[in-house]
Design a protein around this nucleic acid. Structure first.
Lengths: 216, 216
DNA sequence: TCGCCCTGTGAAGAAAACTTCACAAGAGAT
DNA sequence: ATCTCTTGTGAAGTTTTCTTCACAGGGCGA
């Protein structure tokens, strides 16, 4: 069951959000400011946080790194008012995962929430993979790009991959694809298209997580 | 300089969008349908595409995978006239990066555009520089153990470290400590004790996060 | 059929990473 | 002063990883 924490100083919006989320079958809890939220994070782990940027006391922007430290795996969605490009950009740099512009429609909110929960899900599905394999897979820039491309595209044929990576010598790509296949990160379909395996998806997610944490 | 491609069958909106984007200091080019867009993608690489979902001829939804194939790194923002979740979800699944609901305000558009350009830029930078360092630091088992030890202990002297790692040859440890220091992960105090730097702490956090997600 | 692109293999060489060894300056104890 | 432990350096050698090259079968359009 997905636990969601709503952080907003507006009593009415807070209540509405919790109701809406619960109607959608999600468990939601509210906090009225950042400090309360941090307190609640100590008691309970959440899958996702809806965080207002503008609040009295500790504001959302300041809270992001603190939340990240306390709950590195929780996805943070920033709720920001129109017309503040800087704020939104900055909040993502601070470690936010996504944003939604206020005022928003329920549909738009749920879309964002569901997408982010989906992205977070990888944390739970697991089977032991040894670290050497993971890091060997991720140690090389070309392999990282490959994982990201495949993660994004779903599947790609060999030559498309070569061109996307902008590598002149296709055998070089072949070498790394072999390495990735041996690491169990990628596989081929009947028509020879490459795609990520479950472990590959996991590695790709690790990668994007690390990217994000460097952003902070 | 950021290159943007606007794809919309509405002549007026197309022109307006290009003007607005150029006023904001971005380079924008327009295409009046998906096939033209694909043609232009062959000539030039774009950082971002604003794509209308409903168009005569090849529609936006169909175009997404084709664009992705041609320009895998370009960010695709869907403009959808129907605020329907289905369309948006489906377009994201097809490989879109973000969406915006028509009619939209200039502010909202620019927010979305800027955020997506930011994300794209960030991906490139990180891929180029930081990640090689990070993974070089984490690629080796001895170095990982060192990071974990220092993370737990705060600081340790050289020989204590050697013994904790159960390595016979102290120069071997020395080699890896040097690598970690060059990666900017560790540093020494005046009394020669080793400790993590900020980046080192970050790397250690990444590491423990990954471990955790693999165990679960 | 011919030529061309796709997909791939294997070997050889180059580069990077890692280990081992030989040695040494300083600090402290005896 | 001598001994030992700590904390290194640098060179040489080994192993692993990466790149490059030469080649080859299959498919497909002209």
């Amino acid at each position: 069951m997905n636990q969601i924490l709503v952080v907003d100083d507006d009593q009415e919006l807070r209540t509405t959000l919790v109701e809406v989320l619960e109607q959608e079958g999600l468990q939601a809890v509210a906090a009225r400011n950042a400090d309360d939220a941090l307190e609640q994070l100590k008691q309970e782990t959440y899958d996702l946080i809806l965080l207002d940027l503008v609040m009295p006391g500790t504001d959302g922007m300041t809270a992001i790194p603190l939340i990240r430290k306390q709950a590195p795996r929780t996805r943070i969605i920033i709720m920001t008012a129109y017309a503040s490009v800087q704020n939104a950009v900055q909040s993502l740099q601070q470690g936010g995962d996504d944003y939604i512009v206020k005022p928003f429609k329920i549909d738009g909110l749920m879309l964002t929430v569901r997408l982010n929960l989906q992205k977070a899900r990888f944390c739970e599905e697991t089977e032991a993979v040894d670290l050497d394999k993971i890091f060997n897979g991720l140690a090389n820039s070309l392999r990282r790009q490959t994982l990201q491309l495949l993660s994004r595209q779903g599947q790609m044929r060999f030559m498309d991959l070569v061109r996307a990576l902008e590598v002149e010598d296709h055998t070089k790509v072949n070498f790394h694809l072999k390495a990735l296949r041996e690491a169990g990160f990628i596989d081929q379909t009947a028509d020879k298209s490459y795609h990520l395996t479950t472990n590959g998806q996991r590695a790709a997610t690790c990668l994007s997580y690390i990217c994000k944490s460097l952003e902070a």
